[in-house]
Design a protein around this nucleic acid. Sequence first.
DNA 1: AGTCCACAGGAAGGGCAGGCGA
DNA 2: TCGCCTGCCCTTCCTGTGGACT
Length: 408
Amino acid sequence: MVVFSENIFSNYMKNQSLFNNKDVLMPSFAPKRIFHRDKEIIQLGSILAPLLRGFQTNNVFVYGTCGTGKTICSRFVLKQLEETGNSNGRKIKTIYINCKMKKTADTEYRLFAQLLRELGIEVPDTGLPTDVLYRRFFEKLDEEEQTLVIMLDEIDYLFKKIGDTFLYNLTRINGELKKARLNIIGITNDLGMRDSLDMRVKSSLSEEEILFKPYNATELKEILMERINEGFRSGVVGEGVVGKCAALAAQEHGDARRALDLLRVAGEIAERRGDIEVLEEHVDIAENSIDLDKVIETVRSQPKHSQAVLLAIIKLNESMKKKNNWVDKRLLTGDVFNTYMDICKGNGMKTLTQRRVSDLITELDMLGIINARVISKGRYGRTREISLGMSDSVLEKTKKFLVERFGY
DNA sequence: AGTCCACAGGAAGGGCAGGCGA
DNA sequence: TCGCCTGCCCTTCCTGTGGACT
């Protein structure tokens, strides 16, 4: 029972926080020092340096797996480039765009709209032809002598969705500008994307390439120690915790973002429990919690029909497991569509066509929630084999969320 | 070698919301 | 205000496809 004469936050305020500055442990935080990426930073810096003297330079293609420091290093270099340029009387502006942001930069129109907004020009969400946006962007850019560096993060997502026309359009702008200059930094964790690009785009975007290798456990440990010193009160995080976070993240392709998330969430769990120290058991709990939050957040942001398709996949997956020979049985597009229709009918929803559901399956695959690959069953047709890309505990919570939503 | 299946996925077009210009 | 334009989401129609089966 809550007694209203007592302040519910008094306990929280009584205990001293384990954190000094939690922002330092956020993936978005820009640290003063970046470890083990000297070579890549210097390489990117030397490619962009001619811009400071007003010379043309090459576009850059940055690739490496998740959490290898691509974004943080690129942002670090661009920030310094902008500062150095501006303090030397040369106008350099940088724009960061994450192409995976739904409804923000996931179509060519939305990408150019976002670029225009960054340049201070408001444009409607729809209604204008894309080439009008393109022209406005071009005119605004060429109003004065300046250099614009556009950093397109997760560029593979946009490429898979709409092809490489937008890249072709962007890269050819430079030849038409009279006063301004435009440079593009494409960042991706899809190492195969480069090979799928149109020859003209490839030669223009991949003029320079920088590969970010995964961190090993020792490097991750050093990165964590630096953040702990600033982020936590001294002595609240033990040596074992750092080693565990680093080892777990090293297993996941040397992902520094993962290591930081583990550390921060472990700290939050310890604090919530009222413990005075972050322990290895907190890291174990954090490991499950992070996956869960990420997947639930993604699922929650999906349109209703995508959620219904995912529920259909989860339900079918479950019923297959219950059967003895479930290993031999495969989850196919047709089965998913039938179950999806049942879910829609049960909820009074109008069903989308199989063609559209096929696209939704592709989108769920691109988000990493499911795995779908095209297979041929010979005489019995060509279809997609679908499986779930999440652990049992995450699956259980996702199912709970979807079942509550659809009551199925 | 030819047939056939169950889709994949491309192309075209409709409906809707919204902008532009006369 | 109205007609015409656009992008987006979706449907409809269509062709293409890998490999088991005949």
